[in-house]
Design a protein around this nucleic acid. Structure first.
Length: 978
RNA sequence: GGGCGGCUAGCUCAGUUGGUUAGAGCGCCAUCCUCACACGGUGGAAGUCACAGGUUCGAGUCCUGUGCCGCCCACCA
């Protein structure tokens, strides 16, 4: 049984999302191990490697004021390793505290040589099959960190910004033609890369469409907001007069192939007609910078425009920027605006809120630029991964997530795999512009681990080497240069299930463990990782990487937001463990793992000084220190880094959602203590069925059922269901009833033996069942039990395993399931509850004994009569009579139950007012129920069409209720007399 | 814009194929420090199952639509 383990995020602390993931995996591993499977963890790919580099670079730039370019590749990588070692030690400590039996020794990182080899083999093979190719792509360039960031590391934020309205002169304007075209931009420096200005090909029609849309909107908007829409409509109408004629003219000029002069660099650029220009916005014209804007890139492709990149890889302007070369973007922006103004070409500066793409890493704006990148052709790879899911070789649980997976793959969008980083697997490609093909043949004649291909666009060879790096002079008389880029971390992560097992070598591990059993992960990673693992597995090994994928919920904070470092709303599992314990953390998380997609986790700070709770707000959750609203003292949080903050007492982040689990751990521990305190004279021996007391047979019956439920639930990843049945069995049945009922026998020397054996057996089974979810408490109980009762079990005792970790998972002992016993207990519990209720409502002290009569049919009487001693011990109630003729005492409290009417003798005890109030209320309730039933039965449709058993049930229910009503009336009458 | 999920007690959530009077934990009220457990026991109060239609003898549950919250993907799925 094999589980692929995704890693926790590298730069932050583990938060509850990671704790959930790791806990569920460890629950499965322990569960399967107990079932006798040979299990293997396959821990952590380092998909967060990029984050590490970014954090290190950010430190360098802010604290040491130097960039990676100053530092050099080797030194940067050395620092990253150092950072990662610190990080790993911390994460390992946390996982260990959580009880995760994760072994990270074997495969520390994806840069492990074994994995590195798998990466090169894969790249080589894809290159050879022409599934890897070189193409162009706009890259999100983080100018601060001087790296590209991937699409998912970009977030959009509205910021206060400017629209600069600029004028470009028309070359040789004819009479009547405009002399200038006005455009607006938020990034004036990109004008240096402009290769066209666009105007709509049919401005009148576009305006018509915009108008129609606005009218539609006007009709739909509520009265209040209409004014604003109407204003827009008016503006549009105005525009028809003022702007439209000019746009039509410009459009005609564009068709005629007229040119503009790009100021500052004096480059002629065409006026083009393209629908990207929006006549309803701004001047109606738009500058086109294909190398620095995604939309413009599309226009550039459509209009076959040149693409001028003005950026260097370090975020400064390059030679294409002419006089502005080497300036940083902000400096260039400043200069260009003032230069344009000097030329009289700056029309106005408009203040506006703009939606700007930011880098998640540095929090600075993104400057996209066009770059050559490596791509993986997805057509056939994606199809294979889709087939694996549609034909069921990979099962996704819950099934609804399969749709997203298929839809995403269905696009078959090529996968850009190159990244402009220094950390990661460097792309095994060398360039050579000077050699001839014959030279290459000569150099690599006897090698099948080198292939090459022509790069026509750049007039050079692309040489891919599989096994080892090529020397600069590998081709005699020519120089090879290696590609600087590294591969997307998902490229190596995608290989994880087979690369860690030794692929491409046919190792015994690969043979034994591949395909693995299950991947447990959260849904945001389905496309990034799951899909890619499937397709590389199929491509490389020829089989799927895992049989099942379990997608667990995401943990959100109290506001329903995803936990993340950026927001600072993550809950540190260490806080939870400190406050509630590791078992409570794990059980609690498993207990809320339902099939829904999210789980909310409202959290509070606990003041370490006065122990009061302080609401966690969006403001205070990111602070390193917080002032307690109750006692006024300050405490530190998980964000404290400075010594002065850290010296304060730490305020834990707590959530009452773990209280249930903590209390449960405590309950189990105390129940175990009780059992062990009562094992005096325990002797292991076989137990015959006829020796079993009623409660023994009942608890064994329930145990069989619960074992069955828990097993079934865990096998189908219904963690919450499993936890719920175990919780209820342990607390409501084992503790509240079995333990209470068995107390008497444990005091009785003659009956003690069997009671002890059944008690120990049940506890033993319960501890096994709970072990995966509560490893620490259960192990402790197990070890202590081993001292008192090393041999235990029903019907034949056997020596217990040395640790519950290697104990076997209980089998549901189905022959023990006894519906009759369970029915008897249901009645028993009902009567017991009734007796307690009467005691409570009559305010009778628990110490005062009471007597009661129970009116019921003979069968029920026979069933309950043997339980008499338990009514005495659990409710302090003595039964005086059972059966249809049971007489009500002169003064009594009455209660109608499903199968029994209870009369508690209240001679000398009665609180008449309380009893009357209670009876009146009861009467009202029953009358309501009777009316509902009578209505139902009066409905001819119901009687005719509903199944006969349902109708019969209704009738019986009605009769029963009417009987109860009679009794209540009688009781009320009796009260009136007294 | 598309897809997915949620809306059930003050809070956080269960509710299996439609079928008696819709459940749990926390919180609240009352009571009990009873010899495993006050992180406990016992009892209680508390819900127009988001809204509007529809199917059905019968709807929290099935269908259609609407609203709000959230997530994912994305200018054409």
């Amino acid at each position: 049984y094999t589980i692929v383990i995704p890693p926790p995020n590298v730069t932050g602390a583990l938060h509850l999302g990671h704790a959930l993931n790791n806990s569920l995996q460890d629950i499965l591993i322990r569960f399967k191990r107990m079932q006798g499977f040979n299990s293997l963890w396959m821990p952590g790919t380092d998909h967060a490697g990029i984050a590490t580099q970014a954090v290190v670079e950010r430190r360098l730039l802010t604290e040491e004021k130097q960039s990676r370019h100053d530092l050099g590749r080797d030194e940067l990588v050395r620092r990253i390793w150092q950072w990662k070692d610190e990080y790993e030690a911390r994460i390992l400590g946390q996982l260990k505290r959580m009880g995760c039996s994760c072994d990270w020794q074997r495969t520390r990182f994806t840069l492990d040589p074994v994995c590195a080899r798998a990466v090169r083999h894969t790249f080589f093979q894809l290159f050879k099959e022409r599934l890897i190719y070189r193409g162009k792509r706009l890259v999100n360039w983080d100018t601060f960190l001087q790296t590209a960031v991937s699409d998912d590391e970009v977030y959009h934020e509205a910021v206060a910004g400017h629209f600069w309205h600029l004028k470009y002169p028309v070359i040789d304007p004819r009479p009547g033609e405009p002399t200038h075209v006005t455009i607006a931009t938020t990034r004036p420096e990109t004008m240096l890369g402009d290769t066209a200005v666009a105007v709509h090909r049919d401005p009148a029609a576009a305006l018509d469409r915009a108008e129609a849309e606005l009218k539609q909107k006007l009709a739909e908007t509520p009265e209040k907001e209409r004014e604003a829409v109407q204003a827009q409509l008016d503006a549009l109408a105005q525009r028809r007069q003022t702007v439209l004629p000019m746009l039509v003219r410009l459009r005609d000029m564009a068709r005629a192939g007229r040119m503009l002069k790009l100021p500052l660099v004096d480059r002629p650029i065409p006026l083009v007609a393209d629908e990207w220009a929006k006549p309803e916005l701004g001047s109606g014209c738009v500058k086109i910078t294909p190398a620095h804007d995604p939309n413009d890139y599309d226009v550039g492709k459509r209009q076959k425009l040149p693409m001028v990149n003005i950026l260097n890889a370090d975020g400064t302007l390059n030679a294409n920027a002419g006089a502005y070369e080497k300036l940083t973007i902000p400096k260039a922006r400043e200069r260009i605006v003032s230069d344009m103004e000097a030329l009289g070409l700056l029309v106005e500066v408009e203040d506006r809120e703009i939606d700007l793409a930011h880098s998640d890493r540095s929090k600075t704006p993104i400057e996209p630029y066009l770059a050559d990148q490596w791509f993986v052709r997805m057509e056939q790879l994606a199809q294979s991964a889709m087939d694996a899911v549609t034909d069921g070789r990979v099962k996704i649980v819950p099934g609804r997530y399969a749709q997203g997976y298929l839809d995403w793959l269905g696009e078959k969008r090529d996968w850009p795999v190159s990244r402009q980083l220094w950390w990661g697997h460097r792309i095994p490609i060398w360039y050579c512009a000077t050699a001839s093909e014959a030279d290459l043949h000569r150099a690599f004649a006897d090698r099948d681990d080198v292939v090459w291909r022509r790069d026509e666009e750049n007039d050079r060879w692309l040489i891919c080497a599989r096994e080892e790096d090529l020397a600069d002079d590998a081709v005699r008389g020519h120089t090879l240069t290696r590609d600087d880029d590294v591969l997307d971390t998902w490229f190596s992560s995608a290989l994880w299930p087979h690369s860690t097992l030794g692929w491409p070598e046919p190792t015994p591990e690969l043979k034994y463990y591949y395909p693995t059993s299950v991947l447990v992960t959260s849904r945001d990673i389905i496309t990034l990782w799951v899909a890619r693992m499937v397709l590389t597995g199929l491509h490389n090994v020829g089989d799927v990487p895992f049989r099942e994928v379990f997608i667990h919920p995401k943990i959100l904070d109290g506001y329903g937001e995803t936990m993340s470092k950026t927001k600072g709303n993550g809950v540190d599992p260490v806080d939870v463990m400190d406050k509630f314990g590791a078992d409570a953390l794990r059980f609690g998380l498993a207990h809320l793992t339902t099939e829904t997609q999210d789980v909310r986790m409202p959290v509070e700070f606990e003041c370490p000084h006065c122990n009061k709770l302080i609401e966690q707000t969006k403001k205070n959750r990111v602070l390193p220190r917080v002032k307690c609203a109750h006692c006024g003292l300050e405490f530190s949080t998980q964000w404290a880094t400075k010594a002065e903050d850290r010296s304060l007492a730490r305020g834990a982040v707590v959530s009452d959602r773990f209280e249930l689990a903590r209390n449960f751990c405590n309950k189990l521990w105390n129940a175990a203590r009780f059992a062990m305190l009562n094992l005096e004279g325990y002797a292991a021996a076989a137990v015959r069925d006829d020796e079993l007391a009623i409660e023994d047979r009942w608890v064994l019956s329930r145990l069989a059922t619960v074992t069955e439920q828990a097993t079934e639930a865990l096998e189908s990843y219904r963690f919450a269901d499993a936890m719920r049945s175990l919780y209820e069995f342990a607390w409501d049945e084992f503790c509240s009833f079995y333990v209470e009922m068995v107390k008497g026998r444990l005091q009785d020397e003659a009956r003690r033996g069997v009671a002890q054996r059944v008690l120990v057996h049940t506890l033993d089974a319960l501890v096994r069942l709970l072990h995966p979810a509560m490893p620490f408490v259960t192990e402790e109980i197990w070890q202590r039990l081993a001292e008192l009762a090393p041999e235990r079990g029903l019907p034949q005792p056997a020596r217990a395993e040395a640790s519950v970790m290697v104990a076997s998972w209980p089998r549901a002992d189905k022959p023990r399931q006894d519906s009759q016993i369970e029915a008897r207990f249901a009645s028993f519990q009902e009567v017991l509850r009734g007796l307690r209720e009467i005691r409570s409502r009559q305010n009778i002290s628990p110490k005062t004994p009471i007597r009661f009569a129970a009116r019921c049919d003979r069968a029920t009487a026979d069933l309950l009569r043997p339980m008499e001693p338990y009514f005495e011990s659990l409710a302090g109630a003595h039964a005086t009579s059972w059966g249809p003729e049971a007489a009500a005492p002169a003064t009594n409290a009455h209660l109608s139950l499903k199968s029994v009417e209870l009369f508690v003798d209240l001679a000398g005890l009665i609180d008449v007012a309380a009893e009357r109030a209670r009876l009146e209320k009861e009467r009202g309730r029953i009358q309501g129920a009777i009316a509902a039933k009578q209505n139902k039965l009066a409905n001819a449709n119901f009687v005719e069409r509903a199944p006969t058993d349902v109708v019969a049930k209704e009738r019986a229910g009605l009769a029963d209720l009417q009987g109860q009503l009679g009794s209540i009336d009688a009781a009320l009458a009796a009260l009136a007399k007294s």
